[in-house]
Design a protein around this nucleic acid. Structure first.
Lengths: 119, 119
DNA sequence: TAATCATACTGTGGAGTCTGAAACACCGAA
DNA sequence: TTCGGTGTTTCAGACTCCACAGTATGATTA
């Protein structure tokens, strides 16, 4: 019960980052963050187009991740009963909000990769 | 070679999100994002303090994640040869940049968890 | 007619990675 | 001698990912 160090670090917030539920957990999946941004950039976008951009991911992984994101209501899946089948993904409003916040992170990460002067 | 659909989506960017190297990969680890922000908020911070904030993660996971982040040069580890041992983690400049971009994401995610009106 | 194509997945097996509980190492203090 | 406080490492089990093949439908082609 040593609650003697609340660390009034002025930062103020410091909310409980603990349980990693919902979005935070979903975003830990491989390609999840990229996926959100890819959809955000191309929407409405079909499965095949996503595959092209994220060529490194397997279809099953993509499919799973997509399902998770839909379950989290970050994006919507619209299926057109045509032949051949067509499915389109779009961001929900929540998804768009997330995407906006995520983009700076990814952009920074890529830039960092690029200019990673090894020495 | 059907390069007929460059999708001049005006968004302009659309950089290759493909290989998921470096930071993007590291951030996919469980608690990685939270970890960066926790260190950012409390630095310089000791291992034990991190554990308190991220109580849901095990020490080994934390340790591994910390190592990865150090390897990515997102944070520094300073070990003091005292008894009992003391180790302090701090953000590097890169880490701080990342943290700044990450915080909006996490804040939003938490907020969303909180106000997840089920209907 | 029969074979082929296009799309968006789904299923399988195995390889690989990650996880948490507990044990470990250290040495001063009691 | 036993204890206490730190941070790291071990280990077996759980989980995730990948490559690849297969499913379904109907238009198109030979």
């Amino acid at each position: 019960m040593t609650e003697a160090t609340p660390e009034d670090r002025s930062e103020g917030e410091l909310t409980r980052y603990c349980p990693l539920t919902g979005v935070a957990g979903t975003l830990s999946g491989k390609y999840a963050m990229q996926l959100v941004c890819v959809v955000g950039a191309l929407e409405p976008v079909r499965f095949g187009a996503i595959e092209e951009r994220l060529a490194a991911a397997s279809t099953s992984t993509l499919s799973a991740r997509l399902d998770e994101l839909v379950a989290e209501r970050l994006l919507t899946r619209t299926q057109y009963d045509e032949i051949p089948p067509r499915v389109e993904y779009e961001l929900t409003e929540d998804g768009r909000e997330l995407c906006e916040r995520l983009e700076p992170v990814l952009a920074w990460a890529e830039e960092r990769e690029a200019g990673s002067g090894r020495t």
